[in-house]
Design a protein around this nucleic acid. Structure first.
Lengths: 342, 342
DNA sequence: TTGTACGCGTTATCAT
DNA sequence: ATGATAACGCGTACAA
């Protein structure tokens, strides 16, 4: 492998000049051409290890996810990668397989690898454990939480406005007269699930609709759990007239049930889903909460870039990005039993 | 950041001894304890950049995929990661977004990053372009193709036996009397799609069943294309009595259509799918081709590890891993129109 | 604008 | 078993 020395020798210039050329310094136009030719001829490539040794930067960003098999995350990853690569960073993607031990272990691993920054979608980890990692506590390795937050953590995080998302969605059901509204949520330890549940509870309270615990089914954000939850809801003695799924996978599971049972949406049951159901799947005419995935990705990348540049202004930064309710004809009017209209 | 020097100073030993300790050399038990204590007290961590500079290894493996949003790939990635991490390697995951330019560009990028090895799931790239990358041509950076192959490439590749997979699957239809068999394939430029099509053609020939080009629908491995293809097949003047989808996404799209049209499987139509439909989705009683994902991942990782260890025995190595046909009651008996049994 | 020379933290060779 | 020391390839004062 040719080194900067070889290029210097070939051109008759010094390594300092070559280095300047490589890093965008002032070099005579004639020298530039000469160097470019040498680099091409020799097939010279910078040695990133050597550069890192000097600069203390690896140009690597660690991304730690609960799982790679979740479209929501992989979408965001791809978008972050695009943004970060434009700035010269590449991604070290890690999954902790929704395993608490792996989560903290891999977080430590990433800091050991001297990545320049870390994006974490947390699940089980506690704030104390994070802050016990010296590089993170000393802000040597900037960390940004994405999508989810955890208790007592007061670092940067980029989140969606989950509570408003479900509030506004369920409100649509209510406006159409629904009172028995099924709600399929994820594990309450995960902040997104917890917050989405809050939205549901608040809107019921605001509209003075009695809360029936039976109507809230807890899944684990998987397709199978959404499938199971939907079946449970429909098998209730007094089943809901409307149901909301609160993530992509559980929505898919629930929709599958409606197909299987040959239920027409919205004639037989009203439904609201979550995430890009209509884009990734076929064109299902189902109202969904659209999360600002692009913004989540971009803002996370931008904030991390800022921190990696040493700018700790407005720390800790907490962003709540707005979701969008994409309306489709999946919400039917519900005429109360025993009403004058019956 | 404390360095090896600090540890040496703290312990009164020389840096050479510390280095030996770190790399598993012979060190007195008393010294070991002393060093361990120093490392703990000082919070010393090895500087990987410096180590790389000396060893010429980064302990990074590059993985380049068409997309991260494909369960088949992300599963395999997670499994490879587990295997490689056990050997001390971490993964630099990249997606080329199914973009030809990005594919070659990112492959170059990974070699520039001095990853120790690369796993590539190719799509558009041509063998010549790969071999024009010096590090790869000179076997400095081992490369293993995964899942797909490309023309004229004679390097290592780990593949599934796609042709047998579809041959055996479609054969099941034929055994049950089906003659009009719909087949939803991916882009023929992708080797897996091409090979799966071959299996279909061969089995028809072997059983002397006339080939109707109308029954072969080309999708792009996406859910939407499977959905479209299935609708096209069913709208044919003389529609198939059995249909096979040849990847996970297209299978899902096709199954959606059967739900929408309220077609019962296998009463109204027989169906065979692909990939872990029954595991990731709900428990659909559909016969599927199960790809050896775990083996693909493990063998790819193992082969790459071998190459990275400098062992180029049995090069190039081409593995064809067997798929499994998981039978479920989704294939009905077809009684030919106009037969004695009608 | 260009060159000299040093140091980044580690591994490895060769003594001791 | 341990130590002194020379690389590894690059960036950067500082000098010219």
């Amino acid at each position: 492998m040719p080194t900067i020395k070889d290029v210097a020798q070939y051109t008759g210039l010094s390594i300092a000049t070559i280095s300047k050329y490589l890093n965008g310094g002032n070099v005579l136009e004639s020298s530039r051409a000469l160097i470019a030719e040498a680099i091409d001829k020799l097939g010279y490539k910078v040695n990133y290890a050597a550069r890192s040794l000097k600069t203390n930067r690896t140009m690597m960003v660690g991304v730690l996810l609960p799982s790679l098999n979740v479209p929501f995350f992989s979408y965001i990853c791809e978008m972050m990668e695009t943004r970060l690569k434009a700035e010269g960073y590449s991604l070290v993607l890690c999954s902790y397989y929704e395993d608490p031990k792996e989560e903290i272990e891999k977080l430590r691993f990433l800091t050991m690898q001297n990545v320049d920054g870390i994006v974490l979608v947390p699940q089980f980890i506690v704030a104390d454990d994070i802050m016990q990692i010296p590089e993170i506590a000393e802000r040597k390795t900037p960390l940004v939480l994405l999508d989810r937050t955890i208790p007592d953590f007061d670092g940067d995080r980029i989140l969606a406005d989950n509570t408003s998302a479900t509030y506004n969605a369920v409100e649509q059901f209510i406006i159409q007269g629904h009172k028995r509204i099924g709600f399929i949520i994820g594990p309450p330890e995960i902040s997104t699930a917890y917050e989405r549940k809050i939205g549901y509870e608040r809107v019921l309270i605001d509209y003075s609709i009695p809360m029936d615990p039976e109507l809230i089914r807890v899944g684990d954000y998987s397709i199978a759990s959404g499938y199971r939850a939907m079946n449970e809801l429909l098998d209730l003695p007094n089943p809901p007239t409307a149901v909301m799924g609160t993530n992509y996978e559980m929505t898919m599971g629930a929709v599958m049930v409606t197909f299987e049972r040959k239920l027409r949406i919205p004639d037989d049951i009203s439904f609201i889903g979550y995430d890009e159901v209509q884009r990734t799947m076929i064109n299902l005419p189902i109202t969904t909460v659209l999360q600002p995935m692009a913004d989540l990705a971009r803002n996370t990348a931008d904030l991390l870039l800022k921190r990696m540049a040493g700018d700790y202004g407005a720390y800790p930064q907490v962003q709540r990005l707005k979701t969008e309710l994409v309306l489709k004809p999946s919400i039917g009017k519900h005429t109360p039993v025993g009403s004058a209209y019956e």
